[in-house]
């Protein structure tokens, strides 16, 4: 039970940081290069043994919350559902199945820094690229879209690692 409370804390904390800190930081012309999406972490970190159904419901709720606050209903839900469904496939692609234990949370201190960077780098990049694609709804300016996705996923990775060091390091 304490586990599910922990999930709720992470959801609230990351949403708070996303909406009230990241979304309001103004970097002038470069603002669009600092819009990392960090809330997807609450889905990516779930144990491998979590059923896909549970994950999908969770993703729907988280996406809905973000969308309601940002007034973009459907945008984050659809992207988050897709990336949630593809999570296990991406994991299979980038690693041998034995690499990760089924019953551990996929955080920095459980899976090691190299695999952490690799796994989260790939899923976050996919998430950002899909998000910008659906938001823009066309393939024009594909290069700027991909560079935006790359830079923002690096920012997201950095922010998430900072959070890991603050909140998960005592385990």
């Amino acid at each position: 039970m304490s586990n599910s409370f922990q999930h709720i804390y992470w959801v609230i904390g990351l949403l708070f940081f996303q909406l009230f800190v990241i979304d309001v930081i103004d970097l002038g012309t470069y603002s669009s290069f600092f819009t990392p999406l960090i809330f997807s972490y609450v889905i990516f970190k779930r144990k491998l043994e979590t059923t896909v159904t549970e994950l999908l419901i969770f993703a729907f709720i988280v996406g809905f919350l973000v969308d309601v606050f940002r007034n973009t209903i459907g945008l984050n839900i659809s992207v988050l559902l897709l990336i949630t469904f593809l999570r296990s496939r991406i994991l299979n692609l980038i690693s041998a199945r034995e690499d990760f234990d089924d019953n551990i949370e996929l955080n920095l201190f459980n899976i090691g820094i190299l695999r952490y960077l690799f796994y989260y780098g790939v899923v976050l990049f996919f998430h950002h690229a899909l998000f910008y694609l659906v938001e823009q709804f066309s393939f024009v300016h594909l290069f700027s879209l991909l560079s935006k996705a790359l830079i923002n996923s690096l920012f997201a990775l950095a922010i998430l690692m900072l959070f890991e060091f603050i909140f998960n390091s005592n385990k």
Partner: peptide, 15 residues
Amino acid sequence: FFLFLEFIAISFLFS
């Protein structure tokens, strides 16, 4: 189940 939820999300998006 994924397609069902995605369908809901996309109908939100288009509406």
